[in-house]
Design a protein around this nucleic acid. Structure first.
Length: 991
DNA sequence: CCCCAACCGTA
DNA sequence: GTACGGTTGGGGG
C-alpha cells in the first residue's frame, strides 16, 4: 500500500445487525431461510466494488476488507465484567445469516478478517491508523458511533444505507464534538446496549456542552466542583471512576496484531462463476443478472453453490419448516408455508444433494494416518479459526466414564471440511486434542499427566469460544452426552446438530442409530471398535490411560465419521419433509434433558434402607412357608426350578408352556392356580413382589446417588423408542412403583430439598384424547369437551347402562376396551386382560366398532397407510417405521399392525409432552420463575418439578397452561387437553 | 464374560 | 393388545 491508495473497511458484524433492523421486509429464500441481511450485504458490496465513484463515497477502492467480531469474549470483558452483558441472543432469523455473510465475503473474493479477543472495531481502528500513517485514505463502511472517534481528514465513514459520507463536520453536527472528543463524550454518556456505565443523568447534549466548557474528560473530572447544577455535580463526582472505566471501554485499540498485512488487502479481481454460484444459491435474481452481465458469464450455466446453513437452536418462535408437508398441521398462528410447488421443488433439490453426498461418501476410504494430534494452543486456535471459517465442525469428547455426570474430560476431537477447493469438497480433516492423558493412575509408580498436552484451562477457554459461538454449527453423535460433559466443564454449547437424532427422525423403527451402525450403513466404513483401544472386561482401562497415538486414531475418527454422516443425512431431513420434527421435537430437547439430568432428584436413603430391611424380613418369612409347602428348599427366583416344583413334583393342573417349552410361572398363571385353591402359588406371587421391590428399587436406587451432588441423575434416551417416547435408565425413573400401597412407599423416598416441594403435573387421558382427535369420534369429543368420565361413557354407549349408578365391573370392562383400542385391540388380548372367553371379547369388540365406527375406520386406514409406506405418522409428522408390516408370517404381521395402530397415538402424546418440555422453561422465565422452578423428571405423561415453596402458587398455572396448550401454534386439537397438578414434599403425595 | 429368556415395574 | 428398562437365572464360550 502506498500514498494515495484507498482502503475500504467494512464493519461486517455491525452491518448484520443494522441490516436486520433496518430492512423492514423479512426476506426469505423459497425454503424459508431468512436472507434479508445477506441480500443487503451482497448488494452493498457489489455497489462498492463496481460503482463506488457514483455514490457519495466518491472514490474507488484499491484495498478492501470485511471485518467481523471473533466472539463476545474480548479484552473489554476483562476490564469490565458486565461489558455487553445486556446483549441477548441474536434473533432467530439472524442466526443463520452470520455464517452466510462470511461465505458471501469469500464469494466476493474479499478478505474476511477477525482476531481473537478483539472486536471488529479494534481491528478496523488498527488498519485505519496504519493506512493513514502510510498516507493512504480510508473509508470505513459503517454508521456506528463507536467508530466515529477514528474520523480524521484522511479517514471517513460511509453509511451505505443512507448513502451518506460521514466526515469531521458530520460528527460535529450529530454529536456536538469533533471526532477526537468522541471517546470522552461516550465515556460520559455510556451505552446501555453495550452496558458501558457512563455517568447517570448525562446524555449526549449535556456531555457535549461539558466538553465544550472544560475541554476534555480529565479536566472535567478534576474541576467537577465548578459545575453549578447540584445534581449533575454530585453525579459526576460520585461516578468519576465509572467515567474513566467507560473511556477505556469505548476507546478503540490501534495495536491489534494483524493476521493480514495492509498489502494483503489489495483488491483482487472478482471470480465471476464463484460469486454467481453463491448468489444463485441465495436466489438473489437481480444481483445474479447484474453480476453475470458485468463479468460476461452465462448465469444459467452455473450451478448454485452448496451453501451450508444453520437455523439455530432457538426453542421457540414461529413454527416454520421449509420442508413441512402437513397441511393439517398448519396452525392458525403459523405463518403461511411456501407454495406447495415451490416446497416440493426445494425438497427435490435437497434429495439431489443427499444423493450426491451419499455417492461421494459411501465407500470413500477414510485415511486415519492423516489424523493430527494437537498438542499446543496455537495449533488448536488455528483449527478453531478454520472451524469458524467454514462454520461447521464435527465434535466429539473423550472422557473417563460412560455416565456423563461422572465423566471427566480426557480430550476432544474436531473434524473440518476442507472447502478450500469449493463447497463440494469431500476432504475432511480431523484431529484429536489430548488434554488429560495419564501415564498411570496415581499410585506408588507415580503416574501423572503425560507430556505434550495443552493445559486443560487454556484448551477449555479456546474451545468455549468455538462451542458457544452461535455462528458455527457443531455436529456430534449423541450430543446430549457431550453437551452435558462440556456443561460440567463450564461450556454451554450453542448451535448444534446430532447425527443420532437426525437418523432417528429419518428412520425410527428401522435399524439402530449408533455411530458404528450408521457408519457401516451409510459410509461403508467400520470405525475402530472401542475395545481395540481401551480393552475390555478385566483389562479395560479408562480413556485417560490410552496411549495418545492410539487415542488419536480412535477419537479423530469419531469426529470425522460424525461429520461425514451429517453431510449425508442432514439434507434428507428437508428432502423427506422432516425438518420440523427434527428442529421442534428433537434438537431443542437436548439441552432441556441435559439440564434435567444434571439437576437430578434427591432421595431419602434412610427411607429406602428401612424399606429394604422390612422387605427382606417379609420375604424371608415367605421363603420359610414356601419351602414348607414345597417340601424342599430350592431357588424360588428360578422359574425353571419353580416350574418343576409346581407342575412336576406337585403336579398342579392347568400349567402352560412358554415359547421355549418351559413351564410358565407368570403371575397370571400363579393367580389362576391360587384361584383353584393351591396355597403355594399365592405365596410365590407375594414373594416375587417383595423381592422385586427390594432388588430393583430399595437396594438399587441408593447405589445411584452421585458422590458430589448426593442426588440421583437418570439418563434419558431420546432415540431408543419407535414411537417417540423417551426412555430412562441408570436408573430407570419411569417405572417407579405406584399401583399398590407396598410399591408406592418407594415413591415417598423421592423428596424435595428444604424450602421446596415436588410438583407433579400429568396429562389426564392424553392418549384417548389423541385418539378422539385423530379419529374424530363425535361421542369421545363431546365427552372430553364436557369433562365426563370417559370409561363410564364408553360403557354406557356399549351396554346401554346409565352412567349414574353404573356397576364397577361394567366400567372396568369398558376401560379395558378403551386401553385395548389404543394398543391395537385383539380378541385374544382383551380376553386375556379381562379373563373372559375369546368369543365374548370378540363380541365386545364388534359392539364397540358398531358404536364407534370411526375407530374402525381409523384403524383400517392406519394399517393401509403403514402397508403402503412402511411407516405411520404422528399428528406432528414424526414417523415410526414398521418394515415387517407385510411379513408373510401372520403373527408377525398382526403384531406390526397393532404396533402401527398404537404408534400414532402413543407417539403423538409423546410429541405433545416433548413440546411442553421445550416450552416450559421459556414460559417460566417469562413469569420470572426460572430461578425458582426446576424441571427434574419426565414419565411419559407426567412432569415432575422441584419448586420453591413460595413459588408454587405462581408456578402451577404456568406449568398447567403450558402443558395444556403445548400443541399450539402448530396444531389446534379437536379436544381439550387436561392437566392435573399437585405439590407435596414427596413424589407419592404429589402424584 | 456375554447374551438370552423370563418376569415385572411404569405409562 | 402398545411402549420401555432392570434383575435374575442359566447356558454357552
Amino acid at each position: 500500500m502506498k500514498k494515495g491508495d484507498h482502503l475500504f473497511l467494512v464493519d461486517g458484524s455491525g452491518f448484520i445487525f443494522r441490516a436486520f433492523h433496518a430492512l423492514p421486509a423479512l426476506t426469505r429464500k423459497s425454503d424459508g431461510l431468512p436472507v434479508g441481511a445477506v441480500s443487503g450485504f451482497c448488494n452493498m458490496l457489489w455497489k462498492l466494488l463496481t460503482n463506488a465513484r457514483d455514490t457519495n463515497v466518491g472514490v474507488t477502492p484499491t484495498h478492501f476488507a470485511v471485518i467481523f467480531d471473533y466472539s463476545s469474549k474480548t479484552f473489554r470483558k476483562d476490564l469490565y465484567d458486565a461489558y455487553k452483558a445486556n446483549r441477548s441472543a441474536p434473533p432467530e432469523e439472524l442466526v443463520p445469516q452470520f455464517g452466510l455473510i462470511r461465505q458471501a465475503t469469500r464469494a466476493f473474493n474479499l478478505p474476511c478478517i477477525e482476531t481473537e479477543g478483539f472486536e471488529a472495531d479494534d481491528i478496523i481502528a488498527t488498519y485505519a491508523r496504519a493506512a493513514e500513517a502510510i498516507g493512504a485514505d480510508v473509508t470505513i463502511i459503517s454508521s456506528d458511533k463507536d467508530l466515529m472517534q477514528l474520523v480524521t481528514p484522511n479517514v471517513h465513514m460511509y453509511d451505505s444505507m443512507k448513502d451518506k459520507q460521514i466526515g469531521i463536520p458530520d460528527v460535529i453536527e450529530k454529536w456536538g464534538v469533533p471526532p477526537e472528543k468522541m471517546i470522552d463524550l461516550q465515556a460520559l454518556v455510556g451505552d446501555s446496549v453495550d452496558n458501558v456505565p457512563g455517568i447517570p443523568g448525562i446524555g449526549p447534549k449535556t456531555a457535549a456542552q461539558l466538553l465544550e466548557e472544560f475541554g476534555d474528560l480529565d479536566t472535567l473530572l478534576a474541576r467537577a466542583d465548578e459545575i453549578k447544577q447540584v445534581k449533575r455535580r454530585e453525579n459526576i463526582v460520585a461516578n468519576a471512576d465509572m467515567a474513566r472505566l467507560s473511556r477505556k471501554l469505548v476507546e478503540l485499540r490501534t495495536d491489534v496484531p494483524l493476521d493480514l498485512p495492509l498489502d494483503a488487502l489489495v483488491l483482487e479481481k472478482q471470480d465471476g462463476p464463484k460469486l454467481l454460484g453463491f448468489l444463485k444459491a441465495m436466489e438473489f435474481g437481480t444481483l445474479t443478472r447484474r453480476v453475470a452481465e458485468a463479468c460476461d458469464c452465462d448465469a444459467s450455466a452455473i450451478e448454485p453453490a452448496e451453501v451450508l446453513v444453520e437455523w439455530g437452536t432457538a426453542a421457540h418462535g414461529p413454527d416454520l419448516d421449509p420442508g413441512a408437508e402437513h397441511p393439517a398441521s398448519e396452525a392458525p398462528l403459523a405463518p403461511a408455508a411456501a407454495p406447495a410447488a415451490k416446497a416440493s421443488a426445494e425438497r427435490a433439490k435437497a434429495a439431489e444433494l443427499a444423493a450426491r453426498r451419499l455417492e461421494a461418501f459411501a465407500g470413500k476410504e477414510i485415511d486415519r494416518s492423516r489424523y493430527l494430534t494437537i498438542r499446543d494452543l496455537d495449533t488448536l486456535k488455528t483449527w478453531i479459526a478454520a472451524a469458524k471459517d467454514t462454520g461447521l465442525v464435527g465434535f466429539d469428547t473423550e472422557t473417563t466414564a460412560v455416565d456423563p455426570m461422572l465423566a471427566d474430560l480426557v480430550g476432544v476431537s474436531l473434524a473440518i471440511q476442507d472447502n478450500s477447493k469449493g463447497p463440494d469438497s469431500t476432504e475432511i480433516m480431523a484431529a484429536y486434542v489430548p488434554l488429560a492423558h495419564q501415564s498411570g493412575h496415581g499410585d506408588l509408580l507415580g503416574g501423572g499427566l503425560v507430556e505434550g498436552q495443552i493445559p486443560m484451562a487454556d484448551a477449555l477457554a479456546a474451545l468455549k469460544d468455538l462451542l458457544e459461538d452461535p455462528s458455527v454449527l457443531k455436529v456430534a453423535q449423541n450430543l446430549k452426552y457431550d453437551y452435558l460433559v462440556m456443561k460440567r466443564h463450564g461450556v454451554t454449547m450453542q448451535s448444534f446438530d446430532d447425527t443420532m437424532l437426525i437418523s432417528y427422525v429419518l428412520e425410527a423403527g428401522a435399524g439402530n442409530h449408533g455411530m458404528d451402525a450408521l457408519s457401516e450403513r451409510w459410509l461403508g466404513h467400520t470405525p475402530i471398535p472401542y475395545k481395540d483401544v481401551a480393552g475390555s472386561g478385566k483389562s479395560q482401562v479408562t480413556f485417560d490411560l490410552v496411549d495418545i497415538e492410539k487415542a488419536t486414531a480412535y477419537a479423530a475418527e469419531d469426529a470425522d465419521v460424525t461429520l461425514r454422516l451429517w453431510l449425508v443425512l442432514k439434507p434428507r431431513l428437508a428432502a423427506e419433509g422432516l425438518t420440523r420434527v427434527y428442529e421442534r421435537l428433537e434438537r431443542p430437547l437436548v439441552p432441556v434433558l441435559a439440564h434435567m439430568e444434571e439437576r437430578g432428584i434427591t432421595i431419602d436413603r434412610q427411607i429406602l434402607s428401612r424399606l429394604s430391611g422390612e422387605l427382606a424380613q417379609k420375604a424371608a418369612g415367605f421363603e420359610d412357608e414356601i419351602y414348607q409347602l414345597a417340601g424342599e428348599r430350592f431357588n424360588i427366583g428360578s422359574p425353571k426350578q419353580l416350574g418343576d416344583i409346581l407342575f412336576g413334583k406337585m403336579n398342579l393342573p392347568g400349567g402352560s408352556k412358554t415359547k421355549t417349552g418351559q413351564w410358565s410361572t407368570s403371575a397370571q398363571v400363579l393367580e389362576d392356580l391360587a384361584a383353584q385353591g393351591a396355597e403355594l402359588p399365592r405365596k410365590i406371587v407375594d414373594w416375587r413382589q417383595l423381592t422385586k421391590l427390594k432388588s430393583t428399587y430399595t437396594d438399587a436406587l441408593p447405589s445411584y446417588v452421585h458422590p458430589q451432588t448426593k442426588r440421583i441423575h437418570t439418563c434419558y434416551s431420546l432415540a431408543s423408542t419407535t414411537t417417540g417416547r423417551l426412555s430412562s435408565s441408570e436408573p430407570n425413573l419411569q417405572n417407579i412403583p405406584v399401583r399398590n400401597a407396598e410399591g408406592r412407599k418407594i415413591r415417598t423416598a423421592f423428596i424435595s430439598t428444604p424450602g421446596h416441594k415436588l410438583l407433579s403435573a400429568d396429562y389426564s387421558q392424553i392418549e384417548l384424547r389423541v385418539l378422539a382427535h385423530v379419529a374424530d369420534i363425535p361421542q369421545l369429543r363431546q365427552a372430553f369437551a364436557d369433562g365426563v368420565d370417559i370409561h363410564a361413557m364408553t360403557a354406557s354407549e356399549m351396554f346401554g347402562v346409565p352412567v349414574e349408578g353404573m356397576p364397577g365391573e361394567v366400567r372396568r370392562r369398558a376401560k379395558a376396551i378403551n386401553f385395548g383400542i389404543i394398543y391395537g385391540i385383539s380378541a385374544f388380548g382383551l380376553a386375556n386382560q379381562l379373563s373372559i372367553e375369546r368369543s365374548e371379547a370378540g363380541d365386545y369388540i364388534k359392539k364397540y366398532f358398531e358404536r364407534f365406527p370411526g375407530i374402525r375406520d381409523y384403524m383400517e386406514s392406519t394399517k393401509a397407510f403403514a402397508r403402503e409406506h412402511g411407516y405411520v405418522e404422528t399428528i406432528f409428522g414424526r414417523r415410526a417405521h414398521y418394515p415387517e408390516i407385510k411379513s408373510s408370517n401372520p403373527s408377525v404381521r398382526a403384531f406390526n399392525e397393532r404396533a402401527a395402530i398404537n404408534a400414532p397415538i402413543q407417539g403423538s402424546a409423546a410429541d405433545v409432552i416433548r413440546r411442553a418440555m421445550v416450552q416450559i422453561e421459556p414460559a417460566l422465565a417469562a413469569a420470572g420463575l426460572q430461578e425458582r422452578v426446576r424441571m427434574l423428571l419426565q414419565v411419559h405423561d407426567e412432569l415432575i418439578f422441584e419448586v420453591e415453596e413460595d413459588a408454587i402458587d405462581a408456578a402451577m398455572p404456568v406449568i398447567v397452561k403450558t402443558m395444556e396448550h403445548a400443541t399450539m401454534p402448530a396444531i389446534a386439537m379437536r379436544v381439550p387437553l387436561k392437566v392435573d397438578a399437585r405439590a407435596a414434599s414427596n413424589w407419592d403425595e404429589a402424584h
